[in-house]
Design a protein around this nucleic acid. Sequence first.
DNA 1: TTTTATTTTTAGACAAATCTAAATATTTAT
DNA 2: ATAAATATTTAGATTTGTCTAAAAATAAAA
Lengths: 219, 219
Amino acid sequence: MTHSEENYIKGIYHLSEAGAGSVSTTTLATHMETKPSSVTDMIKRLAGKELVNYKKYQGVRLTEQGQLKALQIIRKHRLWETFLVEKLDFNWDEVHEVAEQLEHIKSDMLVDRLDALLDYPDYDPHGDPIPDKDGAFKTRDKKLLANLGPGKSGQCVGVVDSSAAYLKFLDKHGIALGDSITVLEREEFDQSLKIRIGTRNFSVSQRIASNLYVKPIEN
Amino acid sequence: MTHSEENYIKGIYHLSEAGAGSVSTTTLATHMETKPSSVTDMIKRLAGKELVNYKKYQGVRLTEQGQLKALQIIRKHRLWETFLVEKLDFNWDEVHEVAEQLEHIKSDMLVDRLDALLDYPDYDPHGDPIPDKDGAFKTRDKKLLANLGPGKSGQCVGVVDSSAAYLKFLDKHGIALGDSITVLEREEFDQSLKIRIGTRNFSVSQRIASNLYVKPIEN
DNA sequence: TTTTATTTTTAGACAAATCTAAATATTTAT
DNA sequence: ATAAATATTTAGATTTGTCTAAAAATAAAA
Ligand SMILES: [Mn+2]
Ligand SMILES: [Mn+2]
Ligand SMILES: [Mn+2]
Ligand SMILES: [Mn+2]
């Protein structure tokens, strides 16, 4: 598989995970920052390799084989991100671009040893699960901070959008994975939340609150 | 620069380091495992980017700019090889193929941090010098084991050919970088050498002896 | 249910990197 | 110095991945 084929397979995986079932040509084109006609070409190549099922005008979906391939690339992406943060002191907003390249390195031994060096991590620096060799990964009981009721608490375990802009915003407000967050009050007017992290009380917009995953803490 | 362009630049560097001055189309084609006609095409592209000087039928040589680029790729290659051996427990004969891919990853931060993680190594697992950011590297007083006179000793510091086959051969005979070798006797008939490493005495062929660099030890 | 708008595909072109076969140039041998 | 051998370049083709513009299919609106 070429880098481009791998990137498409990964793109299709992410889009069909979010939406339901088949992915449209235009949606994929937008995601891949390319033209629909290029997507049609690539889809045909991937269909020829039995990585996707494709019927004209009906969008595309991954085959079993394609799905496993996607998960293997995602595994590498997330292991490398973890490596960059844990071993090379990258910040969590600096890893994506480099991991986008590193995920294409072909060497089973390298992936295995990297996994061992990192002590077999279950989650990457953004809280996303790292699939194992067979594509299996742990799912976690998590909900959006935006959906956490007043008085309830949760531990910050992930982000919806892991763009550098959003991650830097979280850094700036001193919000990090692992933090315990308590919702003090919901402002009905703009759906913003008053929250407490440690001893600090402050307010976050609806936009922010619906980008942050928390694991509810019973109390 | 594309992967292919980088590989060519590196190839030209290695060939002009060994031979003198300009590299012929055929020599480069053999080294790159491709056809002379493909080399001519690529050379023209590289000349257009001012990475090489090229006049028809006169071979090719790197410009200042091309040389620096070559050294930066070699730096990455050797840092990654060092990483694989030091941090991921690869054997020295297992690293080349993967480093051949990793050397193309584009990220200055990554290279700097990797260098720091490895504690700024001067030499790679094959004893080859690792250039710094500006392309400067340490040269070492070394000579071929084949040229070491009887009675003389040297410390093993590098190999000429770092192919897996040769490296495995050295492993099998318990010869590693850092070992002290004493030449006991030269067999004039086939130029083989009787040597001592530690407490072991044995004989190595001329072929082997002219593939191993030693730093002479005065005594 | 036509008409209109949107989505998707096809057709044709292009750059990168390669190849084969043929044409030139250079080198070596006679 | 001429011929033969070798090296190099050109011409034309192929694959991958992309693009634009036009055609065809599907979905939405009137
Ligand atoms: Mn990628
Ligand atoms: Mn991530
Ligand atoms: Mn390479
Ligand atoms: Mn090396």
